[in-house]
Design a protein around this nucleic acid. Structure first.
Length: 516
RNA sequence: CGGGGCGUAGCUCAGCUUGGUAGAGCGCUUGCUUUGGGAGCAAGAAGUCGUCAGUUCGAAUCUGGCCGCCCCGACCA
């Protein structure tokens, strides 16, 4: 007998979240088969299980955009170099991360060793930038399209890929190429544009909460975190399980900066030429990274049902050859029945995994892939007319035997229960790690890792009274690696107080945190 | 772009110090046995050892150039 401490329970993912969060994140992606790094530096291959989540996000968000009056369009991947220079702050913000296309032809040249080498020729008179975002090229289009106040508002969205040459990529969180949507709108008045900016933030907040099960804080970015070229940047900010913040979506009020730069002018009601007021807003595949870090556990991915690629996975248990066909038929019949039902306004996504694999292996695969409900059907279930139901949000060993008809009738409700449970759990976690802090010493202690070997384990969201400057914020980032995540909306955040850093009277509470 | 590390089978890596013709585990394929919880046994496929050059009778191993990747900084949805 040894006196060694009891072995940790075995988990499907190593290391655990507690041991090494960043590595855990990578392993979850690998184990769930969502995506992989590609041979192109900084770019990812999104595999079907991951892309399915993106398709669900796209479809559901797109409906919300349409419901608020927006239309989709598509603009070029390549942006004339000169366009980017039109707005001063915008150039500065993106100049350092642009991929530039300088040639339009390749010439095959035979090498001495017989191999071919492709040499770019046909240099372009004006190089193109691969869009890091499309304000400038969409601005140029808007300038053509808008003539009269009667053309406004112009409410456009684009689903696209963009490229920002990142130094340190991380799958889904920060890749050189990523998928997103970018909304671009032009309005007659400042008030309308501001209302649009606020409205789209609410759309994002609703989507994050109801579809991704992410409780987010809505607010405004501080000056130093603002989008290059924006008058104000609104955001939804989420907390993930290492208690860091992640910006999950942004909505920008661009004032007349881009309409001036791009010449988006119209004849107003009084007959005068006026510059339009514009907005832009976006969410990206980063949402998937946020989902992973917010909900998953040491056994792999945990998916909110609404965006899960598959919601119900049916696993035939076929120990005997003579009952095999009957079991498979029953599984197919159940899948058909489930797909005819709806959950959250869409057909239930149910699939039968017919692969001939050992039961345990196959079961673990779906645990790691985070499918919300697993159903097992074997010969004994057939006799009893029941199914064995396992839920990803419950213990792995928990299995409930339910009459098939009862399961079917409750399927949508069960999915909603899982969805609500994930939101509840994430909200409790977030609230438990969002702490009111009133002095500098407390603030430093909150953000100083207790274990220097694991600097990722630190405080969370610090709620402080703030009257500091951008320089003060810079200083705190240097010292502790924290930034103002946002100046949250809501009366409870607009309390008078005393700035925790400067001691000056303050009118606003802000959230400081380490961020992705 | 600074500082560190690493390129050997699909993956994780051993072998390199002391040069002698390629290894393990996992995964994959096939067969048998299994199957209500991540299976067992057996057989098999799979690598111009990142690349180019040099030293040598002989290089994964020694030397140099180049390329790529990872980690830590600066930047970032």
């Amino acid at each position: 007998m040894s006196n060694a401490p009891a072995a940790k329970p075995q988990t499907a993912i190593t290391p655990t979240r507690q041991d090494e969060f960043p590595e855990w994140y990578q392993q979850v992606i690998k184990a769930s088969d969502m995506a992989e790094n590609s041979e192109v530096r900084g770019c990812m291959v999104i595999k079907p299980w991951g892309y399915g989540i993106w398709e669900n996000i796209q479809r559901q968000l797109d409906k919300m955009f349409k419901d608020t009056g927006h239309s989709n369009a598509y603009f070029p991947l390549l942006i004339p170099l000169s366009y980017l220079a039109k707005e001063a702050a915008h150039v500065e913000g993106f100049a350092k991360e642009c991929a530039v296309v300088t040639h339009h032809r390749l010439e095959a040249v035979k090498q001495e060793d017989g191999s071919m080498k492709m040499i770019p020729t046909g240099e372009l008179a004006e190089p193109y930038v691969i869009r890091p975002t499309s304000e400038t090229i969409i601005g140029a289009a808007f300038a053509r399209w808008v003539e009269s106040y009667r053309d406004l508002p112009l409410l456009i969205n684009q689903w696209a890929n963009v490229m920002r040459w990142e130094m340190r990529p991380r799958i889904f969180l920060r890749t050189a190429e990523f998928l997103w949507q970018e909304g671009h709108t032009a309005h007659e008045t400042k008030e309308e544009a501001l209302a649009e900016t606020a409205q789209m933030l609410t759309v994002y907040e609703t989507f994050a909460r109801d579809h991704l099960a992410l409780p987010v804080i809505t607010g405004e970015k501080s000056e130093r975190e603002r989008f290059p070229g924006a008058e104000s940047t609104l955001c939804i900010e989420a907390m993930v399980q290492d208690r860091k913040a992640i910006q999950a979506g942004t909505s920008h009020f661009l004032g007349q900066n881009f309409s001036t730069a791009s010449g988006i002018q119209f004849t107003g009601r009084s007959g005068a030429r006026e510059h339009a007021w514009t907005t832009s807003w976006g969410v990206s595949t980063r949402l998937i990274g946020t989902l992973i870090m917010a909900h998953s556990d040491d056994d792999g991915l945990v998916l909110p049902p609404r965006v899960a690629t598959q919601q119900i996975m049916i696993l035939p248990v076929t120990p005997k050859e003579d009952s095999k066909q009957a079991v498979l038929d029953a599984c197919d019949a159940l899948a058909r029945e489930l797909r005819a039902l709806t959950y959250a306004g869409e057909p239930i996504r149910a699939h039968v995994d017919r692969r001939d694999l050992p039961g345990g292996t196959r079961n673990w695969e779906w645990i790691k892939k985070g499918v919300p409900i697993r159903i097992e059907i074997g010969p004994r279930d057939l006799e009893k007319g029941s199914v064995a139901v396992s839920r990803r949000d419950k213990g792995l060993k928990e299995k409930e035997f339910i009459a098939t008809a009862d399961f079917v009738s409750k399927a949508a409700a069960t999915l909603e229960e899982i969805q609500a449970g994930l939101l509840e759990r994430a909200t409790v976690f977030r609230d438990a790690n969002m702490i009111r802090i009133t002095d500098k010493a407390q603030f430093e202690a909150f953000f100083t890792p207790k274990n220097p070997d694991k600097p990722e384990i630190h405080g969370g969201f610090a709620v402080v009274d703030w009257a500091g400057s951008s320089d003060d914020e810079d200083e705190l980032q240097k010292q502790l690696g924290v930034t103002i995540r946002c100046l949250p909306f809501g009366d409870e955040w607009k309390q008078p107080g005393t700035c925790f850093l400067t001691g000056q009277p303050s009118t606003q509470r802000v959230i400081f945190a380490k961020a992705y």
